[in-house]
Design a protein around this nucleic acid. Structure first.
Lengths: 326, 326
DNA sequence: CCCTCTTTCTGAAACATTTCATATATAATT
DNA sequence: AATTATATATGAAATGTTTCAGAAAGAGGG
C-alpha cells in the first residue's frame, strides 16, 4: 500500500478551504461553485484519491460486496461472477470474491472473512445454509434460506415445464428426467417438478432418476440398458437437470449405439456455451445469467429491502443446440 | 456493514486488560500466557472480529491484492482467477477482482479503483501497459512491462519448440504456425518464435500466418484453399497459438473435407479442458496455471522484491487430445 | 444601515485499529 | 535486601475520513 499518498488535509491546504468542504465535494453534497472548483483543481494537481479504508472506518459504509461462489471454473459460475462484477461496478461497488469449492467449512470461513471486511452485503450461491447471525444484507442465488433472505433464481419450474412441452411437441412419446446434484434442497429441484407436472397432466409415461453428488453416473447407464431391446431404447426424450449432465448422457447413449437426436432427443438446463462463445453444448433451457446478476445486485443495494419479495424467478427460454430435432 | 460489532475496546474491558495487549494477541506478538487466555476468552464470548478497515487505515497494510483480468469467462482466466484466490487465501490475503474486457479505459479505471482501495499489490494480466505511477508492487502475467515489474508466464518459447518437435516426431513433413491475438507485444508471441526456430534449424519448410484480434478468421480458410490440390492439403502439421484457435481451425479443415488427425495433425496451446473437467479440446501444450498463480502470489508478497527476476518462465508439457496421432 | 433568516463553510470529535514511549512487574546479580 | 537488567503491560497519539454543532457570510426587509 502506498504510504505517502496525498490526503484530504493536503487538498484542503492546497485549495485554501476547510477539511469538511473537501469531504462534501467528494460526496456530492452541494457546495459553492467557486469552492468546488478550487477543491477539484487542487485534488487534480495533487493526484488525490480517496482512501476507502478511512472512509469505510468512519462511515460504516464500505461500498464493497462479498460474492461467494462454489467456484469460478464452471461456465455458469464464471458468467455469473463476471456479470456480478460489472453490475456492481456500475453502481460504484467493489466485488470481493470468495470461492468455496462447495465445502461447508470454506463457506463458514468466508462468512468470517466477510465480517472482518465489513462488507455492505453478501451475494451467495452456496450449497449449505450460511450462518449469518447479524443483520448483514444477504441475497441468495438458487437457494431459499429464509423469508428475510431474498432468493434470486431462474424460473426453474417453468423451465422444466417448457422442456417437457418441447420434447412432446417434437414428437417424443416416452420421457425421462435425469438429475444429478447436491443433496441439499435448492430452487433447481423445481426443474424436475415442472417437468413431472406436465407429464402427469397429459398422462405421459415417464421415469425420473435423481442422483446425489458423488453417486455413480453409471447408474444412468444401467437404467438405459434396462430399457433397451434389440439395440433400441424405449425412451425417446430426455430432460437433464444441467447441460453438463446432458453432455455426459449424450456420450453414454452414443456409446450404446443410440443416435442423438435421431433416436432420442435431449434437453439440458443452463444454456452455457463453448468457450469460443457461440455454440451450445446441447439443446437447453437457457438461464438469464446477466439478469440474475443484475437483479441480485439491485435487490442487495436497494433501500427498501424490508418488503422485498422472498423469491424472484426470472424467465428462461428454450434454445435448440443439436440434441433435438429443433 | 454491521454497525454495532464489538471492538477491541470491548474485548479489553471484558478481559480486564489494556487495549495494546488485545492488539498484540491478534497480531501474534508474544504476550503473557494468562493474558492471552483472558483476551481470547473475552473475544470468543463477544464474537469479536477484527475490523480490517481500521487496521488498514492505521497500519497501511490491507492484506488485499487486486487481480486484474480481461475476463473470467475463458477457461484459462477462470482457472487462473480461482487459483489466485486460493493461493492468496492461503497467505491470508483477500482478492479484489476486476475484469476489464481488455478495454484500455477499463484497465486504467481499475488502476484508479485499486489506488483508492490501498491494496498491497496488483497481479494483472492486461493487454495494454498500465500506468502505475507509484511504487505499488505489481506482478504481470504473460506480459513484460519493465525491468522492475516481474512477469510470470509459461515457457512459451519451449512450448513452441516442443510443439514443432512433437509434430515432426509424429511424422509431419510440412508445418504451419497459425496465430491470432492482441496486437500488443506479449510473452505469448514467443510460442511462434520457438516453433520457427526448430523449423529453421532442421530445415523444415513451414508457413506462418499471424492475425491480429479483429481480423477475419476466414483468411486462414483462404490459406488452406491455396494449399489444396485434388481434395488434399499439402500441409500436415499445424501449431495454433491457442486451443480456441485450434478448435476453430479443426472445424474449418473438416468443412473442407480434411480429416483430423488422419490427414493433418493439430497442436494448440493452453491445455484448457471441457467444463466436465476431463477432456481437452485438442492436443496441446499445457500451461501450468496453478503454478503461475502461486508463483505470482509468492513474487508479489515476498519481502525481497528488489532483486526478483524480471521474468519467470514456468515449464509446459505436451498432452495428446485427439487432434494428433498421439 | 441594522437586524433577522438562510445558506454555506469550518474545524473538532469520532471511527477501530497499531505503535511507541513509559510504567510496571519479574528475574538476576551483588 | 537492595540494585540492576530484562521482559512485558499500559494508554495516549496517530491514521484519513465523515459528521455535526457552531461560525461566518449573504440575502432580504424595515
Amino acid at each position: 500500500m502506498k504510504t505517502n499518498a496525498p490526503t484530504m488535509k493536503d487538498v484542503a491546504r492546497e485549495a485554501g478551504v476547510a477539511l469538511g468542504t473537501v469531504s462534501k465535494v467528494f460526496n456530492g453534497i452541494t457546495v459553492g461553485e467557486s469552492y468546488r472548483i478550487k477543491v477539484e483543481t487542487a485534488a487534480q494537481k495533487l493526484g488525490y484519491q480517496v482512501n476507502q479504508y478511512a472512509r469505510g472506518l468512519r462511515a460504516s459504509k464500505t461500498y464493497t460486496v462479498a460474492v461467494i461462489l462454489p467456484g469460478v471454473d464452471h461456465p455458469f459460475f464464471a458468467a455469473l461472477a463476471q456479470h456480478l462484477c460489472t453490475a456492481l461496478a456500475q453502481r460504484d461497488h467493489r466485488m470481493l470474491l470468495y470461492v468455496t469449492a462447495s465445502r461447508p467449512d470454506m463457506e463458514q470461513l468466508c462468512v468470517k472473512m466477510v465480517r472482518q471486511n465489513r462488507v455492505d452485503g453478501i451475494i451467495g450461491l452456496t450449497y449449505n445454509p450460511l450462518q449469518i447471525d447479524d443483520d448483514l444484507p444477504f441475497v441468495s442465488i438458487d437457494r431459499s434460506f429464509a423469508a428475510d433472505v431474498p432468493c434470486v433464481a431462474s424460473d426453474n419450474y417453468s423451465g422444466g415445464r417448457i422442456a417437457a412441452e418441447k420434447l412432446l411437441e417434437l414428437g417424443c412419446q416416452r420421457l425421462a428426467f435425469l438429475r444429478i446434484g447436491s443433496a441439499n434442497p435448492s430452487e433447481t429441484d423445481k426443474r424436475g417438478d415442472g417437468f413431472e407436472m406436465v407429464c402427469r397432466t397429459r398422462n405421459i409415461h415417464y421415469d425420473a432418476i435423481r442422483l446425489k453428488d458423488g453417486e455413480d453416473l453409471a447408474q444412468f447407464k444401467e437404467f438405459f440398458r434396462s430399457h433397451m431391446k434389440g439395440g433400441k431404447i424405449d425412451i425417446d426424450g430426455f430432460f437433464c437437470s444441467t447441460d453438463l449432465l446432458a453432455w455426459r448422457i449424450q456420450q453414454m447413449l452414443q456409446e450404446l449405439g443410440i443416435r442423438v437426436p435421431e433416436d432420442v432427443q435431449i434437453i439440458g438446463f443452463d444454456g452455457i456455451r463453448r468457450f469460443g462463445g457461440e455454440s451450445l453444448y446441447c439443446s437447453t433451457i437457457v438461464q438469464p445469467v446477466q439478469k440474475i446478476a443484475e437483479t441480485s445486485v439491485d435487490l442487495l443495494l436497494d433501500k427498501d429491502r424490508a418488503n422485498a419479495p422472498s423469491l424472484i424467478c426470472l424467465p428462461v427460454a428454450y434454445a435448440p443446440g443439436g440434441t433435438t430435432r429443433e
